[in-house]
Amino acid sequence: MNLVTFSGPPSSGKTSVILKTIKALKDRGLKIGVVKFDALSTDDDILYEKAGVPVRKGLSGALCPDHYFVSNIEEVVEWGKGEGLDLLITESAGLCNRCSPYIKDIKAICVLDNLSGINTPKKIGPMLKMADIAIITKGDIVSQAEREVFASRVNMVNPGAVVMHVNGLNGQGAFELSTLLYEKEEKIESLKGKKLRFSMPAALCSYCLGETRIGESYQMGNVRKIDMKGKDQK
């Protein structure tokens, strides 16, 4: 079984891109399954089911979605093997720009959209910088110039990544992406012992444990203060 991790900001078009790509992969006779990670709620599992794709979903609820992802990825791989999949895709929304869900030696794909603004690439951390492939969506509604500028900004923060344009609505580019996702010789048996590409965002303070009151005396643990001084006061 092959394993590919998709990640990207909310509403960037991950599910649409994956669905269109799966269509191209199925034409090659491959069996694909998806595990969708989200925070509070998702109906994307219904979309996958409709497309005849075996799917499971995991909601992180009150936990950091990244931490939830890495604590469950082994079980996810077990499920995929049990289903007899050729390719297992995990999809997780990068809900904060510090998300870092990628695993060493496991193909990592970041989905971004042209509408998110040209400063977005530099604002996103490991989720983009550590990806193998960066997919840019929604190119059909912006100008050629904006597509070129956005792609050059993506390239600047991750020069090693393959940058591709995929249209999640009409599927343009999805076949091309599908050719990069599956390698016959690759066999993932278990993730035990593998490592994350980058450490995940950290927090361990009183608010993690359910504190709701505001005020210094309630703040314990890993707490950091904002610098309110202007440049001239430094």
Partner: peptide, 13 residues
């Protein structure tokens, strides 16, 4: 990229 695209649906954002 080999191909640049122009279409009626494209806008500046």
């Amino acid at each position: 990229k080999l191909v640049a695209q122009l279409s009626q649906n494209m806008n500046f954002v």
